[in-house]
Design a protein around this nucleic acid. Structure first.
Lengths: 141, 141
DNA sequence: TATTAGTTGATAATGATTCCTAATTAATAA
DNA sequence: TTATTAATTAGGAATCATTATCAACTAATA
């Protein structure tokens, strides 16, 4: 996996230690389209490294957020993570809890316009739409 | 306050009891441009009705959310509320924590386009931009 | 291979929100 | 106006995600 190696090297160059735990977490996030919670990431990574602790997952996620390698959205009282870092829409299914990504070109433009109008210095944006996914809406009673 | 009276009447017609607690909470949300947390709403309402409990604030907010009289966004591990219910951008200052609203016409259009492309049934949208407000960015070290 | 500072795992602490229940009260009708 | 009653409230306990703490461990370096 070229991308993983590159990101790992860049972390190493920034002076961070490369631990199997960190690699496993980043690897999983790069491979999935899912938007897992810290708890879920912990479950997944434990299959490969049973000794990994939840607190290490949280700390690694903090690091990856800081390096802008992963993004986060807060949904239903918990934080969900993904490695899809360009501006996009998160479609949140209120029934099954899944989150799909949707690219939308106009978001960067909106962000720039908002920065100008508001005088805020904008660092990141989250765009969430809540509803029912195709499967769950079909199953509505 | 005409709007408050109308909303109170509509709640009564829906079979909900009109309590001073509920009126005070809704009244405050209608009057402010702020995006208070439940805790903060509790502080404000207690000045007028010192016996109001935090759990009543939470339950009233649930009711008002269900009736779509207030919106919510999750920021920094807590939920913030406002009575500005049409689609808009929330500008979140990562330093002082304030949230400003910004109208943006294209949001409804984006929402419709996303619904079509994704096949989701969209019920609501949140658009958040994070950064530093004009005051806080000037004060950056 | 030894050194050492960064990292980890385990668990305690925190804080926002939800749950629980007896007491209260808004709404209704007599 | 008063009695009835089911909805609502206050207060506190419980829950759950996240953060903090710290002794033990280990990746990086020389």
């Amino acid at each position: 996996m070229q991308e993983l190696d590159d990101l790992v090297s860049s972390l190493r160059e920034d002076g961070f230690r490369i631990t199997p735990q960190r690699v496993a977490i980043l690897d999983y996030l790069l491979r999935t389209d899912d938007h897992p919670s810290a708890e879920y990431i912990h479950q997944v990574v434990k299959k490969q490294y049973p000794m990994v602790s939840l607190s290490t997952v949280y700390k690694t996620l903090d690091l990856l957020k800081e390096k802008k390698l992963v993004g986060e959205i807060e949904v239903g009282g918990q934080t969900r993570f993904d490695a899809h870092t360009d501006a996009h829409i998160n479609l949140v299914c209120m029934k099954c809890g899944k989150i799909d990504d949707l690219d939308e070109n106009s978001l960067n433009e909106i962000q720039n316009r908002a920065a100008k109008k508001s005088k805020y210095l904008i660092l990141k944006g989250n765009f969430e739409l809540f509803g029912y996914c195709n499967e769950c809406k079909s199953a509505l009673s």
